[in-house]
Every structure is written in C-alpha cells, then in structure tokens.
Design a protein around this nucleic acid. Structure first.
Lengths: 196, 196
DNA sequence: AATAAAAACTAATAAGCGTTAGTTTTGTGT
DNA sequence: ACACAAAACTAACGCTTATTAGTTTTTATT
C-alpha cells in the first residue's frame, strides 16, 4: 500500500486536504509549510505533488466544499414549507452541527478565505453574500408574517451568523449530549433572548 | 522631519504598530512581510528596526493592548452597581464600539493571537479565560436574581462573545447613526431575542 | 516473472523571509 | 557653523519557502 492512508471512498488528494485543514486551522494557511504538511502525513514534500496541484489549491478545495455544503442546506431549508422560526432553528442547528462535525474545514473557510486568489476570492465572497441575502429574506418573511419583531433584518442575520461562526472556542467537547445542550441553548438564546 | 509620520502623542513605534494592525488584518500576520509593512509606511524594511525590536513584538503589542482595554472596561463595569442586564448591555455596547473604533487592532487580537509565542501565548489565553469567567459570573448573578432565564451560563457568554467578536463584516459603515442602530438591535437581539 | 503505472525519493531551483552590519543622510541643540 | 544623535540607507546574511526535474522504489496487472 501507499504511504498516504486513505479512508473509505476517499482519494489520496482527499486525505491530504483533510490533513491540510487541520494544520491550516492550527497554524493558518500562510503559517503552514508544505514540508510540515508532508511530515504530518509521513512523506516528503515533493511527493505531495503527485496528488495535488499546489498549496493554494488545497485552500480552494476546503473553502468551496464548506461554502457549497452550507448553500446546499440553505436551498433545502428554503424549499421545506416550515414556519420562518423553524427555518431559522434549522439553519442555526446546521451551523452548529457543521462546527462540530467538520470543525477544521469550517474554521479554515471562515478564517483563511482571505488568502484565496482571484478569481476564487471573488467567487467565494459572492457566494457568501448570496448566503447572507437568502437569510435576510427569511428574516424579512418572518417580519411580514408577524412572527419576528420589527428588527433590522441585516443586523439580525449578522448577529446570528457571527454567533454561530464564532463557535470555535467550543472545542474538544464533541460529546453528543453536550452538543444538543449547546444547540438548544443557542437557538433559545438567539430566538427568545436572555431576559426572563 | 522623519519619514515615519507620527500622530499627536504618538511615537514612531506607535505609528508602525498602527500600520501593522491594518496589514495584519488584511493579510494575516504570517502573510504580511516586513518589506510590505515598510513600503506601506514609505521606508525600507531595515529602517523599521530603529524603532521596533521584531515582527512578533508588533503582534504582541496589538494583542495585549486590546486585551487590556477590554479587561479594564470589564473591571469598571463590575464595580458600577447597576443591574445585571445593564451590565450586559454596557459590555455588549463596549464590544461594538471597540469593533468600530479600533477595528484593525481588535480583529488582529481576535484572529492572529495564535501566532504569539510563549510566554505571551499562554498569558494571552489566561487573560481571555479570565475575561470569560467574569462574564459567566455576571450571567450567574443574573440567574440568581431572577433577571435572566435558567440558561447554561457558559453557552450564553459564548453566544454573546461570538456574536460581538464576529462583527467583522460590519465594515465601512462608521456612520455614527448606523452604529447606534447596530448597537440597539444587537443588544435587543441578544437580550430579548427575535421572536415577537 | 515481466511489464506498466503509481508513488515515492533526492537534489536543486529561484524567490522571499526576518534580521544584522556598516554607512550615509537628516535633524537638533549649542 | 559645529557636534551629536536620530533615522534613514545599501548590502548582505542564513534560512525557509513552494515547486520542478529526474530517478528509484513500490504496487498492480498480465
């Protein structure tokens, strides 16, 4: 077998990307060298280039994989004909789940996308703006339906996204029990507030 | 006069740190070179070393200046004998103000502190933990006083801090009117929720 | 066992990094 | 105008970077 250990249904490139996500999270994209990445895999740096095109390509893969997953889920949520509040609950829950299940990738997409080069940088930002726009539409829908108070929709979305994207400190505790507690508390906090 | 333009009551080192904060925010600490920093100031890279010790020292200055400002404000807030809710309002407001007035510095402190080296890294993390601990105590006080619902205090603090720290997208709009709107909406959202 | 392909290696490239040494220019106080 | 200090410069150091070229080893297929 090869030195690069692949998981089921995964290519060697996937395995490299996975390791890269972990290192990029800990040390940043610019702060991680290909030699480090290679060593963490158990291989010499040039060997990586049998499987990948470049360092920046790794970052592109991570960022767009995450962006696509979020966008796909949002599309699905839009098409379910739940109440506005349930949609928001669903979205917040998904963000938390992603944060728990694909922590490295989501973190890197949230923090290192600035290191992307055009045209990928522009694409990424457009996708992000589109995502926020869709969320704002949902909040507006809730305001029209009298389900949500007359708050500034953009600020409400900003607050929610900031809150869920910033979840990075919730580390190590992957215990499913605690994740559910986190979900329930955050959803309640962001929807119903803190005041008794 | 010298090439490095100093603002009133500021040393040349302060001017360099200020420029560094801007670059570190845009390109990251590892992604910013001393030659870039020098060029943005209008000087050759080695000239910087007449005024500063090292690159990492710039990051240290930024991170601890921000950390100290937040900690100082929290101390003051603790000693004012307002209600728990007013304390929280006050703290959220201060975070937003800092985000608006010292955007570069706060952003860098929030995102690039990982690049610090020990003992500064450990010190910074301890200070952050202490800050969170104090906030948790305030929330607990509110729960005991029946002012805050029986939420998990750590998660509540996590949510609030995530929300205010993530405010990065609120860019360019330094219009004071809009800042007040942002403040009022976020405070209302984080304290009273979204649901009507 | 022979052959072809995949995946690893070593060696080396040019470029960029933070920083130091040594020197020259600029500004200040007498 | 002279002396001293501050602040800039050029040149260069040793090191690290991502990546390429060329070669050898390993694996899979017949």
């Amino acid at each position: 077998m090869s030195k690069i250990i692949v998981s089921a249904n995964g290519t060697k490139k996937d395995a490299i990307i996975k390791k890269a996500a972990g290192l990029f999270r800990h040390k940043g994209f610019a702060g991680t060298s290909m030699r480090e990445l290679a060593e963490s895999i158990g291989v010499e740096a040039p060997s990586l280039y049998n499987h990948i095109g470049s360092k920046i390509e790794l970052l592109q893969n991570i960022c767009f994989k995450v962006a696509n997953e979020f966008m796909l889920h949002l599309h699905q949520t839009e098409q379910e004909s739940n109440s506005t509040i349930d949609k928001l609950k669903h979205i917040i829950q998904f963000h938390i789940q992603m944060m728990v299940n694909e922590y490295d990738e989501v973190f890197v997409a949230n923090h290192e996308w600035k290191q992307l080069k055009d045209p990928y940088l522009t694409d990424f930002l457009l996708q992000r703006k589109a995502y926020e726009k869709k969320l704002i539409d949902i909040v507006n829908e809730g305001i029209e339906n009298n389900a949500i108070k007359n708050i500034h929709p953009q600020i409400a979305v900003l607050t929610i996204l900031s809150a869920v994207r910033g979840l990075e400190f919730w580390q190590g505790q992957k215990n499913q029990m605690e994740v559910m507690e986190l979900e329930n508390n955050m959803i309640d906090h962001l929807l119903n507030g803190l005041v008794k």
